[in-house]
Design a protein around this nucleic acid. Structure first.
Length: 722
DNA sequence: AGCACGCCGACT
DNA sequence: GTCGGCGTGCTC
């Protein structure tokens, strides 16, 4: 088939990489140019070269370039010597490049060598032109299964991203050494575990039974406070393994992964599950991933990268604490682990378990829509497991001037002092070092920049500066109530630790925060000061927890502020002993606020349900779907003008994007330092989400293909709206 | 994105 | 006649 081409054949097999001398290359080039001029273009099937595979000589290849207009397959010819290795799913290298390519030694060469995946072997190509040959099969390991490809495509579609970008997240980089190492022999399926503490939940036992029987139940699980959750997750995994299927658990961080890992080891012993986290080096990670792909290991627990783990015959996908923002992938197209697992559950028809101490609006929606069933404990069980929650609100603070000056109200003092008699006391303080944000002293509305609405911060003595645009504010007054006095809204962990240390000189003070995260603390009296998410687990549980500056958390100008605050409070409270053992939580926040009430009643689900109703009314996600389009004003306008948005799409804005300040990290969707960007939100009602994603993807592809100058960033489900 | 192709004007 | 400007379009 290569002969009909008629391209000159002049020695040298001309495979890539050889450093041939210049003269023959130029000769060939000239000859080719001359030929082109006088020979009419008959379309040959392939370019001449080595003999091709006799059976299925065409390889359909996905080139590994994240650019959207290349988001399709390209056909290559399979040389005979690669026939055996060039199976679907393997990594390949191909020549891919511009124009009609260079000609060298009589063989056409596209551009440079780039990586790709062989997706399919076929008898013929539907491409009319001549096919280039595969340059190399990188390894015979079929890393991209049909299931994984289908999942990656679904994720790319959902997020208006390219398949190659998703595959970069889904398939780890190759390590030849890890590939050579044989994976362990698979162990036989274990027998079904007992229900353990699942009996505390109304349908807990039934859920495990369904998993063990090979069923595909879908549940939103409101976990009771306390340390049992990791064992409960492990039992769900074990029940799935008992049915002969695989299971996947995604958790927000390495600490949580380690807990589930330990629980699985306790329940199943070694060798039945893999731990996939960022901690391991690339080679070890790839080896683990391969063991999963090869079916040697049937269960996986890991952080968000594990959401794509190629578990064989998947029976259960589970996610813990889906409200944690580390479940959002940082790289394009920024998929969320919850949504990826939802797609997997749908594609693989497997069981789905979303669990947490708290409840997101998205989780509530899964229940509300009837897609998942609630897995909850009765009120009696909740009361038995949860600590007593007390609030310190404005009125208390007003009556308590002295304590307020010291930032610790009397009730809080008492709770800490009492708690320290019985064990460790957790003090949760918001992040952010010493830089205090400011709020109106009278009505507590956050103080905002009048130019860009960014948060005002007190940098150094007295001077107020905007945290977004850096402008100074000389004459602030509150636009809500007309007040003129400001107060510090957030004080960092270190200062609080110092204050408390002085107040209780006999007690050790430990801090856990971004830099030094403590895993556990002993059950002896100590003050443990921590930022949200970094709380160590206390042996035997904390005697008390003090949640400071609660209204500061609620003051964030974010749709999720309430849900987030509640989630963090509940996460701290879940580490405290039950109220039957005198476990107490004191939250310094207005008791009339909805999240505070939900904390007092320990009712995160009720909170999420009410939030969901409100979002539906306002047309906010997740009830409607949104996408953010950002870039220069001109580029955004042009993009939106060209995009064929669905009929029911609604464009909000554009509004200016806060600039990236020099020296601060640039977040995706933020302008390069010094540039002025705008952001428009596009909103569609339920049901039009995929149409919106498709339209944005098409528009973006067209834009890139045109080589349009200024970049436009598209993000589905932007996390920071409102 | 690259990168080659091609059509047009200046120079040998 | 030939070299090389950049505008356009393709990449199996």
């Amino acid at each position: 088939m290569s002969s009909e081409n008629g391209a000159p054949r002049d020695g040298g097999d001309g495979t890539d990489g050889g450093a041939e001398g210049a003269p023959p290359e130029q000769l060939a080039l000239i000859r080719e140019t001359v030929r082109r001029a006088d020979v009419p273009r008959a379309k040959p099937r392939t370019w001449r070269g080595a003999a091709l595979a006799k059976d299925l000589p065409v390889a359909r290849v996905l080139v590994d370039k994240g650019v959207l207009h290349l988001d399709r397959y390209f056909d290559y010819a399979v040389p005979e010597e690669m026939d055996a290795d060039a199976q679907p799913g393997v990594r390949v290298r191909v020549r891919f490049g511009a124009g009609r390519g260079r000609v060298r030694e009589g063989r056409r060469e596209g551009g440079g060598l780039i990586d790709g995946y062989l997706v399919e072997r076929r008898a013929e190509s539907d491409y009319a032109g001549p096919l280039a040959a595969l340059a190399q099969v990188v390894s015979p390991e079929p890393v991209l299964s049909e299931e994984l490809l289908g999942l990656a495509r679904a994720v790319a579609d959902r997020y208006a991203g390219s398949l190659a970008d998703v595959l970069q997240l889904a398939v780890p980089p190759r390590s030849a050494r890890a590939e050579r190492r044989p994976s362990p022999e698979p162990l036989p399926a274990p027998s079904a575990p007992g229900a353990g503490s699942w009996t505390r939940y109304e349908h807990g036992g039934a859920f495990l039974d369904a998993l063990a029987a090979g069923g595909a139940p879908r549940a939103v699980w409101s976990a009771l406070p306390g340390p049992q959750w990791s064992d409960e997750l492990a039992r769900a995994v074990a029940a799935t393994l008992a049915s002969g299927r695989g299971a996947l658990v995604v958790v927000p961080d390495g600490r949580a992964a380690a807990r589930v890992d330990a629980a699985l080891t306790a329940l199943l012993g070694e060798g039945r599950h893999a731990l996939l986290t960022a901690d391991a080096g690339p080679e070890k990670r790839y080896a683990q991933w391969l063991a999963v792909r090869r079916g040697a290991v049937r269960a996986v627990v890991g952080t968000r990268a594990a959401m794509f783990a190629p578990v064989r015959d998947l029976g259960l996908v589970a996610i813990w604490d889906d409200g944690d923002d580390s479940h959002s992938e940082q790289h394009a197209p920024q998929p969320h682990a919850r949504d990826v697992l939802l797609l997997r559950a749908a594609l693989d028809r497997c069981a789905f378990l979303l669990g947490g101490w708290s409840c997101t609006v998205e989780a509530a929606q899964l229940v509300e829509s009837g897609w998942a069933r609630p897995l909850v404990a009765g009120r009696e069980e909740v009361r038995r497991a949860a600590p007593l929650v007390r609030t310190v609100g404005d009125e208390d603070l007003a009556r308590d001037e002295a304590a307020r000056a010291a930032r610790l109200p009397t009730l809080a003092w008492q709770a800490v002092r009492e708690g320290l008699r019985h064990g460790p006391v957790l003090v949760q303080v918001p992040r952010r070092g010493y830089v205090p944000r400011m709020a109106c002293d009278r009505c507590r509305a956050p103080a905002r920049c009048r130019h860009c609405a960014g948060p005002l911060e007190a940098r150094d003595a007295g001077a107020l500066t905007c945290g977004w645009c850096g402008r100074e504010e000389a004459a602030w007054h509150c636009p809500e109530c007309g007040g003129f006095r400001l107060r510090a809204q957030v004080v960092g962990a270190r200062r609080t630790a110092e204050e408390l240390g002085r107040a209780f000189p006999a007690v050790p003070v430990r801090t856990s925060g971004r830099e030094h995260v403590l895993d556990t603390v002993p059950g002896t009296p100590a003050l443990v000061v921590s930022t949200p998410g970094a709380e160590p687990v206390a042996e035997g549980g904390y005697a008390a927890a003090l949640l400071l500056d609660g209204w500061a958390m609620l003051g964030r100008p974010d749709l999720r502020a309430g849900e987030d605050a509640l989630r963090r409070w509940i996460a701290a409270g879940a580490l405290v002993r039950p109220q039957g053992e005198h476990g107490t939580v004191v939250v310094v926040a207005e008791p009339t606020l909805r999240p505070v009430q939900a904390l007092v009643r320990w009712d995160p689900v009720g909170h999420a349900v009410r939030e969901l109703a409100e979002r539906a009314e306002l047309g906010f996600p997740p009830v409607s779907r949104m996408a953010a389009v950002s870039g220069t004003g001109e580029a955004v306008a042009e993009f939106l003008g060209a995009a064929q948005l669905p009929q029911d799409a609604e464009v909000l804005g554009p509004v200016p994007v806060p600039p990236t300040l020099p020296g601060r990290p640039r977040r995706p969707g933020a302008p390069p330092p010094g540039e002025h960007w705008e952001r428009a939100l596009v909103r569609v009602p339920p049901g039009s989400g995929s149409a919106l994603a498709a339209a944005l993807k098409t528009a973006q592809a067209a834009r890139m293909a045109r080589g349009a100058g200024e970049a436009v960033r598209v993000r589905i489900d932007p996390p920071d709206i409102g």
